[in-house]
Design a protein around this nucleic acid. Structure first.
Lengths: 156, 156
DNA sequence: ATCTGTGCAAACCTTTTGCACGTCA
DNA sequence: TGACGTGCAAAAGGTTTGCACAGAT
């Protein structure tokens, strides 16, 4: 309940923020962009562009593939979405909530993705970047392995 | 000097190991595979498949694109190389020295890649995987930012 | 009215595959 | 000799782009 509430707030905020971004750049708010943003925010999994496109097409069959691609790129430029790439040859996007960064555990058997975060690792990353004279902007940490479900299945 | 020596040893070892892998799988040692392995081991940067292909072609113009792709895949299967992907749409391969794992700092301005390793982060990753019931197989950690050189250039 | 956005299809780019010929065991 | 490997070109898969029309400001 509390979670739904806060998710809703995030969505409202993001919509607002997106409009600002568009205006600032002299771009236009369109129905398609709104629909794509809505679907994107409403989906929890780490969908690939194609999967998101299929999802959108269920309710809005007229929206084209290219528009989804272009719009997701736009989200990324605005800082609303983050591009990800788990090595299966498809780009995935996920909502980027700047402060609340998270990393991923990816099951190499079933492909399921679990999020986690660890402040100590984050801190150490900053230390390393400093050490190399880098001004860190972002990072990604992916752990690949076999999830507990798949481990159990294997035993059988 | 010592470093060259040990690099040479690694190369010899790897060549040997690769032959074993091939035999075990009923595959053949060919001139092309030897050449590609040699070039691959001799190059320090994180080359993309195309860059490696171009490099190889300088001395061996007859080796085809597809062979390089196929061979790098084979290296990955044998555990000699690791596939990497820094989000520029090209797959990169790098020598995989199983124990001596390293991660990457990537400059978002000039694209240069610096390797590092941190045992404390490695340890914490293991803790997290355990915590989620994952049997960890591998991981990747990429830090994106601006390298010191590019920071200096920007100020000018 | 103007300038941006969209949908479609074609183009692009990286990677994979089919096939006839070459090569290793 | 016979299987596997190679080179070429074509296919495939994901993403981008050109263009004419539609829509937002």
């Amino acid at each position: 309940m509390v979670e739904n509430q806060s998710q809703l707030e995030v969505a409202v905020e993001t919509r607002e923020y997106f409009k600002q971004c568009l205006t600032q750049r002299g771009l236009k708010s369109t129905q398609q962009r709104a629909i794509i943003l809505e679907t994107f925010l409403g989906v929890k999994e780490h969908l690939s562009t194609e999967e998101l496109y299929l999802q959108i097409r269920e309710d809005h069959p007229k929206i084209g593939y290219a528009t989804v691609y272009r719009t997701l790129k736009l989200f990324a430029e605005c800082g609303i979405a983050e591009e990800r790439n788990f090595g299966d040859g498809q780009t995935r996007y996920e909502p980027a909530h700047a402060e609340d960064h998270h990393d991923h555990l990816i099951c190499t058997t079933c492909g399921s993705i679990v999020e986690f975060e660890d402040s100590e690792i984050e801190r150490l990353q900053g230390v390393i970047a400093d050490h190399h004279g880098f001004k860190m902007e972002s990072h990604r940490l992916d752990l690949y392995g076999i999830c507990s479900t798949c481990q159990k299945k294997k035993k059988t």
